[in-house]
Design a binder for these strands. Structure first.
Lengths: 342, 342
DNA sequence: CCGGGTGGCTTAAACGTTTAAATTATACCA
DNA sequence: TGGTATAATTTAAACGTTTAAGCCACCCGG
């Protein structure tokens, strides 16, 4: 690989002049400028990112880590999220460094390692939670990061999030328009901040419609198929005149659990029970019936996070520093075919 | 961040001594050794990866790129694959750099960029194909890489692959044991090398069982739901005594297309038609019926690729340099309930 | 008692950049 | 013509490491 010295020799100038030409700084005569560019072209010279990094004390890397899903669960948005970030980052001369999260016991040590060894200039976080220790640590050492998801409202940091409340509200309103009145919600445990926001959307939409949320209409469960299946069973064993006619599940995986429970109870999803999911996993369109779901603007989230992060790395404050994006309801047969006579 | 100079000052030695202590090289007295380690501890010093990289002319980065799936398709193994690589890499002091592949027109320029700017020490490739231009380029410039998948058999390079032929053979044998005789295969276009291997497994298993592959039993299609659905329809419109009783699809996505086509034709998958997929996507267990599929040992693939690549980066030849791993047939109801009277 | 070997440490160069400061050449003005 | 401002270029230091080479004191053998 040719270095700046080779270019300098080839062009008959000092390495400083080459550097000035390449960075468009300093005062260089037009003739020299051309000569240097020709030498660069001839040798196929590209500056070494490592040497530049040492000089500038930066790595031009964005660190990102995630906890892998158990084999029976899926993360439908991860691939697009990483790719979206990688693409946006590349446009700014940055790259995404994927590092593993191992034990849940010590969440921050992989992050600390990256910071201390100067591997990354900033982090993208996802799956943040209230009092997230990573957010706490990074705020503490004042290291640049942007989160996908909110955390403790008292902490001031840059984040991008999907407006789960607005999303679920859309879903409930859609069901209301179809004539549903007994609408249940399959929610997450109380600790989950994202779960809280989404559940709030459900409660607000119901309240706005003047509907009381009956006891038992909200069931909290972990994001597992089996839990969702069991929760649905408790609803479906109620008499037809009392049981929910529609279910909003906080993820597609849980929605699938509900759909299968309904089918196993002899009900036709879409006609006897409307189901809505969240995430719009690629699979949703191929389920029977295809699942209505809330699609998150993943590419935009990745893009926004990267540009905000680069602002922070450069010492600027991104504006806005908090971004809430609306998900879009993709209507499919799991609700469309369930129109109720009003 | 403290540097080696700070440690040297703190310990009252030269920076060379600090370096010798940290790298366990050179001759350092026990007393000095201790003093340096204490200074390191006290200051919380960690060597800068960038400075080490400049010195050693290496980045300790493994580049990996993939083409994102269209929104209605899924890549069930990508997440585990990257995470597996990231984990194995981290154990050896390496990290995974994710860079985007943009246009299909110029596949190699993102790779060239990474090479020329010295961003990575080697590459992990996936979705290789016969005469893959990336493999060609990297062989040409003699840059370290390991591929997930084979390419032109005349090229000598390191790869790890899943034995698709053995996998499909397993699947066909499983169907044969259940009493199936009219077994169809939903294959990929001829250009796909992976598709060729898998199809070979089908043909071999059929031949070994003394069964002739009837015209029309093999249909080639792109890896899309809709194509799979249509292919299945052409089989299912045949009279029951002639049509295939089992289908081996080369991916889960295509298997889902077949399952839905069968259901829409009034058949019960599992009883009237057995279906096998490939990849064992997390969703397969939740389909109705749950889909029998071939699981690839993703974590092991990532692990192997990384260790082989690190060998190559160090100038050693990995042994073995070609690894073929067997997938495992995960039997579920989509075949289990289809036992035929023999 | 002197020479050579060696253990233990430091000096200094190198990796490939950027950039402040110094130097040289050129032009302009009094 | 001499001095100064300015344009163009070079020199050299710096970023944080590693490591070859050098240095010094000490010990040991002859």
């Amino acid at each position: 690989m040719p270095t700046i010295k080779d270019v300098a020799r080839e062009a008959g100038v000092s390495i400083a002049t080459v550097s000035y030409v390449l960075n468009d700084s300093g005062a260089v005569s037009e003739a020299t400028h051309q000569r240097v560019l020709q030498a660069v072209e001839k040798l196929g010279y590209r500056p070494s990112v490592i040497a530049q990094g040492l000089q500038a004390r930066e790595s031009r890397m964005i660190g990102y880590s995630w906890r892998p899903m158990p084999p029976d669960q899926f993360n439908p948005i991860l691939e697009k999220f990483i790719h979206g970030m990688a693409e946006a980052a590349a446009r700014h001369g940055y790259h995404v460094l994927a590092f593993p999260s191992t034990e849940a016991s010590d969440e921050i040590s992989p992050y600390r390692e990256m910071v201390e060894r100067e591997r990354v200039d900033g982090f993208a976080l996802s799956n943040t939670n209230l009092d997230d220790p990573r957010v706490h640590y990074l705020l503490d050492i004042d290291f640049p990061f942007v989160a996908f998801g909110r955390a403790n409202p008292e902490w001031d940091f840059a984040w991008v999030d999907v407006d789960g409340a607005a999303g679920v509200e859309q879903a409930v309103n859609h069901l209301l328009e179809l004539g549903h009145r007994r609408i249940a919600c399959l929610a997450w445990p109380e600790e989950s901040l994202t779960g809280q926001y989404r559940l709030t959307g459900y409660r607000q939409a119901m309240a706005a419609a003047g509907l009381e949320v009956q006891a038992g209409w909200v069931i909290r469960a972990e994001n597992h198929y089996r839990h969702a299946y069991q929760a649905a069973q408790t609803w479906l064993t109620q008499p037809p005149t009392r049981r929910p006619t529609a279910v909003v599940a906080l993820t597609d995986l849980m929605a699938i659990g509900v759909m299968n429970a309904a089918a196993d109870a002899g009900l036709t999803v879409g006609r006897d029970l409307a189901v809505v999911g969240f995430d719009d996993a690629p699979i949703t369109g191929y389920l029977r019936p295809p699942l209505t779901s809330l699609r998150q603007p993943i590419a935009e989230i990745g893009e926004r996070m990267v540009t905000m992060l680069i602002d922070l790395v450069r010492g600027e404050t991104p504006s806005p520093a908090q971004v809430l994006l609306k998900p879009r309801l993709i209507v499919r047969d799991s609700t469309r075919l369930s129109k109720r006579e009003m």
